[in-house]
Simulated scan of single mutants.
Amino acid sequence: MLKNTSLIFTMGLFCVLTLSSCKKDTTKEDLKNALTFYASFDQGINADFALGDKQLYTVPNRKARDSAQVGLHKPDIKLAENKGLFGNGLLFTERSKGYIYYPSKNNISYNTSDWSGAISFWLQLDPATDLEPGYCDPIQITDVSYNDASIWVDFTKENPRDFRLGVIGDRSVWNPNPEGPDNENPIFIKKLTGVKNPPFGKDQWTHILINFTNLNTKNGQASLYLNGALKGTRTNIDTPFTWDLELSNIYLGLGYIGLFDELSLFNRALTDQEISYFYSLENGGHALLK
């Protein structure tokens, strides 16, 4: 009896001394609980999981939302079989008019007083040879446009192209007396986090993750990660983000040419450990749904 008691005590002491190895890893469960939207494109264009509307919509322009059609109605965008990161993916073949989107409501955890979240997706392209001249936004989330309460990433308009994160608050606050195009405005440019020589390639997939915390407070922050590595952070974001949530959408592939896959949204910012874990998942977001 004494011998068994000693063994139990020794094992307990070992666990105390090596707490990290004895504690259950809850990273996968934590990510699953934070997930609000996931589209793998493996079974079609609609989301695999969504707290809001799962359907993809096509619209001729932002001001014609009443003309939006359910489904994919742009001939330059198609589901590419077995061309995605794990299965199928979205292939954008040319720059054209019109937009595709998922509605933001409930799919992104917008909050008027303290808003945090994360946006994850994968791209495959060679920006120097695939993109046509002009700015290109693989993703843009807003109720108005890129310059007014919007979160996006873009490629700059000319080679060599930088890759930038924009987290831009209400235009009426940051630019109340506009002169000239906003995307050339020094005030606007200072609000961006950019990466020169970003790690994109024709035959390789690149993971993009946008992390943001405490927007709609005086201490907002947003960070850009590529392939699990932090590439830039903007702090002290104090401009408000005011949305008409019914009009806010998750737009995909504005001016983009290339492959797009594995779109995931979370209701909070992710830790560095979670970002690394999620980047390395062998089956992507599918693993969180099991």
Rank of each mutant, 00 (worst) to 15 (best):
L7C: 11
F9N: 14
M11E: 15
G12M: 13
G12F: 15
C15D: 14
V16N: 12
L19A: 15
S20M: 12
S21R: 13
C22D: 09
D25R: 07
D30V: 00
K32N: 10
N46Q: 10
A47M: 07
A50P: 05
L51Q: 12
L51M: 13
T58W: 10
Q69C: 08
H73A: 03
P75M: 04
N82V: 07
L85K: 14
G89E: 03
S96W: 05
K97I: 09
G98I: 13
G98A: 11
Y99A: 12
I100W: 00
Y101A: 03
I108D: 12
I108K: 08
S113C: 03
W115E: 05
S116R: 07
I119P: 02
L125K: 07
D130R: 06
L131Q: 01
E132A: 07
P133C: 04
P133M: 04
G134Y: 04
C136R: 01
I139E: 03
V144P: 07
D148F: 05
I151S: 06
D154P: 01
T156N: 08
E158L: 06
R164M: 05
I168A: 09
G169L: 09
R171I: 04
R171A: 13
S172T: 14
P176Q: 13
G180K: 09
E184V: 13
K191T: 01
F200S: 07
G201M: 02
I208M: 08
N211A: 10
N214G: 01
T217A: 02
N219C: 03
S223L: 08
A229Y: 06
K231P: 02
G232Y: 08
N236H: 10
P240I: 06
F241N: 03
W243P: 01
S248L: 03
N249A: 14
Y251K: 00
L252S: 01
L259M: 14
F260C: 08
E262A: 06
S264I: 00
S264E: 12
N267M: 10
D272A: 15
S280K: 13
E282P: 00
H286A: 08
A287C: 00
L288V: 00
